[in-house]
Simulated assay, not measured.
Amino acid sequence: MIDKVLLPIVITALMTGCVTQKKLVLNGDFHQLGFYNGISGSEKLSSDTLATITQKYDSTMVFDYDSYQKGYLQGLDQYCSLEHLFKLGEQGKVNWGVCEYRRHQEGLYVTKWQQGFERYGTMEPRF
């Protein structure tokens, strides 16, 4: 339930520009930066890339890659939800992208994707 409430709020904040990469870096909020990257389904930034971004905004700032990674994983776990994997299957997608790690976890992730994929197979072609 919380995921369904939190996700639209985060997406709205990102779309309205309230939260920017620059603002998060300048505030030293690398956990939140990672969270936003994860929940948007983006690839995780490498340590070198995060260092470059940090230096771009503040050459004296020391980035916290561990905090970024923890935030990224929390966001990614919300992005790679059962509903998202069902939609991937429903769209006929075999590659799960950043959610590929879910394929090897126990639980309903593969089942939900399979249900979506089966639904995709029964849909009439759209012209």
Score class of each variant (00 low, 15 high):
C18S: 09
G28F: 14
F127L: 08
I2E: 04
L108S: 07
N95W: 15
Q55W: 12
H84K: 13
Y101V: 02
R102M: 11
G107E: 01
Q55F: 12
S40C: 10
F63K: 04
R126C: 13
Q91M: 06
E118A: 09
T20R: 00
M61Q: 02
V98E: 02
V98L: 04
G116Q: 03
T122R: 13
T60F: 13
V25A: 07
V94I: 08
G38Y: 03
D29Y: 02
Q115G: 08
R126I: 14
N37C: 11
Y72G: 07
Y65H: 05
F30G: 01
D64G: 10
R103P: 11
Q105V: 11
E100K: 03
T54Y: 03
L14S: 08
E90K: 14
V110R: 05
T52S: 14
L108I: 03
R126G: 10
G92L: 02
I9L: 06
F127S: 13
G28N: 00
G38E: 05
Q32W: 14
P8E: 02
T54S: 04
E118T: 12
T52R: 10
S40H: 08
L85Q: 01
Q74F: 08
G41H: 13
A13P: 05
S40D: 03
Y101K: 07
Y65N: 04
M123D: 08
